[in-house]
């Protein structure tokens, strides 16, 4: 099994593309002319802001002579980071988003995987319809999706609440305990189909002959799915997990919309909302430190996850 998987990755590695026999190749100036239209904005709008944020995060604003003195900015070492880690709001937001991610990401990816596997079996009819239905939410901007769902959560407007009440339930989607999961549902709704299609495309790329032998041995569809298909598409599952981790740590728009209708979402509900709230209070250095911490956590988690799983899967 690992053999097949490694072969899959090796094929891609060789398509990485290198030109042999092109007699010296184009001049350096030409190569630069091809690269510069992307790299100039990439440096200006990606790398410079990263460097700037890191630089800012090591500055502090101090005042001379008490509260009415003039303020000046100076090097503060890790002061801003110490403040971040001493901030209970920061840990609360991390805790919320951690809980959110630990539950929402596996649930979403599990549903996506089941759908992809079912779309890949002969058991199912109307495949095109199911595929489009699942992928459609990807066309909806996150903020708009949150607005749509907030109508479905609203006690006044929601047909879902009406139905649940009719069967004797008292749902409160915006209550203090539930609102985190209502936000998680918006993310699940938005991204399940996208992740499903990534996995489904990987399944479609598996040559059918691989299953023939297993079938001759009398393996059930179930066994083929879990013992052959899932291990082969492991790289896609890892990729979708990494994208989901990155997305979760960046959450802003969806909870911000729910905040408009629920008092149970604070202005510092997610780390990103906290960074924005701090920046709005003109404490840019502190906001920069929070942004850097979020980015570092994202990197560590996504790289860590890739290392861990690729070793385990022997990729």
């Amino acid at each position: 099994m690992t053999d097949i998987a490694t072969r899959g990755t090796r094929v891609v590695a060789t398509t990485g593309g290198r030109s042999r026999h092109n007699g010296g190749g184009p001049r350096a100036g030409t190569i630069i002319a091809f690269l510069i239209p992307f790299f100039l904005p990439f440096v200006l709008f990606y790398l410079v802001p990263i460097a700037y944020a890191i630089g800012q995060s090591f500055l502090v604003v101090r005042r001379t002579g008490g509260q009415y003195g003039t303020s000046y900015t100076t090097f503060g070492g890790f002061d801003q980071y110490v403040q971040v880690f001493q901030n209970t709001e920061f840990w609360n937001s991390i805790g919320r988003i951690g809980l959110f991610g630990i539950v929402q990401v596996p649930v979403m990816l599990f549903v996506a995987l089941i759908m992809a596997l079912l779309l890949d079996t002969p058991l199912l009819k109307l495949k095109a319809f199911f595929r489009i239905a699942a992928f459609m939410p990807y066309a909806v901007p996150g903020v708009i999706a949150a607005i749509m769902w907030s109508f479905l959560y609203s006690p006044q407007l929601s047909p879902v609440v009406d139905v649940l009440k009719a069967i004797g339930l008292q749902p409160d989607f915006l209550g203090p305990g539930a609102v985190l999961w209502s936000a998680a549902n918006v993310s699940t709704w938005l991204w399940t189909g996208y992740n499903m299609l990534i996995m489904f495309s990987a399944l479609q790329a598996i040559p059918q002959e691989l299953y023939e032998a297993a079938k001759l041995d009398g393996a059930s569809n179930w066994a083929i799915a879990w013992k052959i298909k899932v291990p082969i598409i492991a790289p896609s599952i890892i990729l979708t997990t990494v994208f989901s981790i990155i997305g979760t740590l960046q959450l802003y728009g969806e909870p911000a919309v729910l905040r408009q209708i629920s008092s149970n979402i604070s202005s510092t509900f997610t780390p990103n909302m906290l960074a924005y709230a701090v920046a709005s209070g003109n404490n840019y250095q502190q906001a920069a430190a929070i942004s850097v911490v979020i980015a570092v956590v994202t990197f560590v988690l996504s790289f860590g996850f890739m290392r861990l799983t690729s070793k385990r899967a022997g990729l």
Partner: peptide
């Protein structure tokens, strides 16, 4: 090397760029 810098860019949370970009 350039290609790995770009791949690293794929993993950068773009919302983390927005605030420093605003200041710049």
């Amino acid at each position: 090397f350039l290609f790995s810098v770009i791949l690293g860019g794929v993993l950068v949370p773009t919302t983390a760029l927005a605030l420093p970009l605003f200041l710049l």
